[in-house]
C-alpha cells in the first residue's frame, strides 16, 4: 500500500482522531491516486480491525503481540519500524493524539525519516503532497514538504478532516507479525487512571462562561463567576488558569479537559490555542472578547469584541441582571 493509517484505541474502539486520519488518507489517496491500508495493534486489535474493515480502505493489517497489549513508546516504535520495513508505505498517517506525541517522533529519529506533526490539510502540487500546519499558536500557517527518506509520517490535528466525511466500504484483514523482546522496552507503565471530576459535567451545560489568561489576576475571577451566575451558566477555563491554580482542573475545556457544545460559549480573554478550540468549537454560538485583535479565537467566533474584559464584564453582568 502507499498510505498506512495507524489506528489508536480509546475505550476499546477506534479513537475519533483515527477515523479522522482515515478521512485525510482517503482524500490524499483520491487526489494522488494512492492505495491505503489500516494498521491495528494492541489488546483492542480485534475490535479496531472490525471498525476498520467497514471503511473504504485497501486492507486492514492486524498486529497482535504480548508486548504490545499495553501501550509503551518503545514497543510501539519498534513495531512500527518493522512494519514500515516489511510494507514500505510512502506515507504513514495517524491522528495527532497525546499518545502519538509520545512515540511517533522516536520512529522518525530511529529511521531518519520525516515526521510532519499536527497537519491541518494536504494539497497536491504536481504528484507530491504539501502538508499545511499552524505555527505561532495558530496565528500563521506554513506549508511543509518532506525532503528525505522513502517514507514520510504525517499526523493530523483534531477535526482537520471531519469524521463524518469518512467513506465506508469493506476491507479484508491480514495478520502481520513483528519480533519484539522485553529488553527493547525501557519503561514500566502503570494502568491509566482518571482524576476526580469534582462533580461538574460541563458537557451538559447550556451556557458556559469561560475564562483565560486575559483575566489578569486571580482576584478578578469573581467577575467571571458573577457573570456566569447572571446567565445561569457554568464557569469554564483555558489551561493557563488551571495551571496557575485559579480554578480547579475539572473546569478546564479542551483536549486535556472536557469537550463541550453549549448553546452559548462566552470566551473571555482566551486567545484560542488549538488545544482549547478542539474542546469547544462545536458550541452553537461562540462569543469572544479579547484585547488582542489577532487572537485565533476570533477565527472561530460568531461574535467578537476587541476590548478589555475587566471593563466589559461588570457592566455586562449589571445589564443582564436588570
Amino acid at each position: 500500500m502507499d498510505i498506512l493509517i495507524v489506528f489508536e484505541a480509546k475505550e476499546g474502539q477506534a479513537h475519533r482522531m483515527s477515523l479522522e486520519a482515515v478521512a485525510a488518507a482517503q482524500s490524499m489517496a483520491k487526489e494522488l491516486n494512492l492505495t491505503t491500508a489500516v494498521l491495528v495493534m494492541g489488546k483492542d486489535a480485534k475490535s479496531l480491525a472490525e471498525n476498520a474493515s467497514a471503511l473504504d480502505v485497501g486492507e486492514v493489517l492486524t498486529l497482535e503481540h504480548d508486548l504490545l497489549s499495553e501501550y509503551s513508546a518503545d514497543g510501539y516504535t519498534e513495531a512500527l519500524k518493522q512494519i514500515i520495513a516489511q510494507e514500505s508505505p510512502s506515507y504513514v498517517v495517524m491522528g495527532y493524539t497525546y499518545q502519538a506525541r509520545d512515540w511517533v517522533p522516536k520512529v522518525s529519529a530511529q529511521l531518519t525519516i520525516p515526521y510532519i506533526s499536527d497537519v491541518i490539510s494536504v494539497k497536491a502540487e504536481g504528484e507530491s503532497p504539501v502538508f499545511t500546519r499552524m505555527v505561532y499558536n495558530g496565528k500563521l500557517i506554513s506549508d511543509i514538504t518532506p525532503t528525505g527518506g522513502e517514507t514520510a509520517i504525517v499526523s493530523f490535528q483534531a477535526a482537520a478532516y471531519p469524521e463524518d466525511s469518512v467513506i465506508s466500504g469493506s476491507a479484508e484483514t491480514r495478520s502481520v507479525e513483528v519480533e519484539l523482546g522485553a529488553s527493547m522496552i525501557s519503561t514500566v507503565s502503570e494502568p491509566p487512571f482518571q482524576e476526580e471530576s469534582g462533580g461538574v459535567d460541563l458537557s451538559g451545560a447550556e451556557v458556559i462562561v469561560s475564562v483565560g489568561r486575559g483575566i489578569g489576576k486571580e482576584e478578578n475571577i469573581p467577575l467571571v463567576e458573577a457573570l456566569a451566575k447572571s446567565l445561569n451558566a457554568e464557569v469554564g477555563s483555558s489551561r493557563p488558569i488551571v495551571d496557575a491554580g485559579w480554578l480547579p482542573t475539572f473546569r478546564q475545556v479542551g483536549s486535556s479537559g472536557q469537550s463541550v457544545a453549549p448553546k452559548l460559549y462566552l470566551a473571555l480573554g482566551i486567545s484560542g490555542a488549538i488545544q482549547h478550540i478542539v474542546g469547544m468549537k462545536g458550541s452553537k454560538n461562540i462569543v469572544a472578547i479579547n484585547k488582542d485583535a489577532e487572537a485565533p479565537i476570533f477565527e472561530i467566533a460568531d461574535y467578537g469584541v476587541v476590548g478589555d474584559i475587566l471593563e466589559i464584564l461588570p457592566k455586562l453582568t449589571e445589564a443582564i441582571e436588570q
Binding site: 499552524m134 505555527v135 500557517i141 506549508d143 511543509i144 514538504t145 525532503t147 528525505g148 460568531d302 461574535y303
Partner: peptide
C-alpha cells in the same frame, strides 16, 4: 545530517467563518 522536511511558505490563514465584530 540532511534535513527531513522543509518549510516552503508561511502565510496568514484564509478565514472561512463569518464573525460579527461588535464595536
Amino acid at each position: 545530517g540532511d534535513s527531513l522536511q522543509s518549510l516552503s511558505k508561511m502565510y496568514v490563514q484564509h478565514k472561512d467563518k463569518r464573525t460579527e465584530m461588535i464595536e
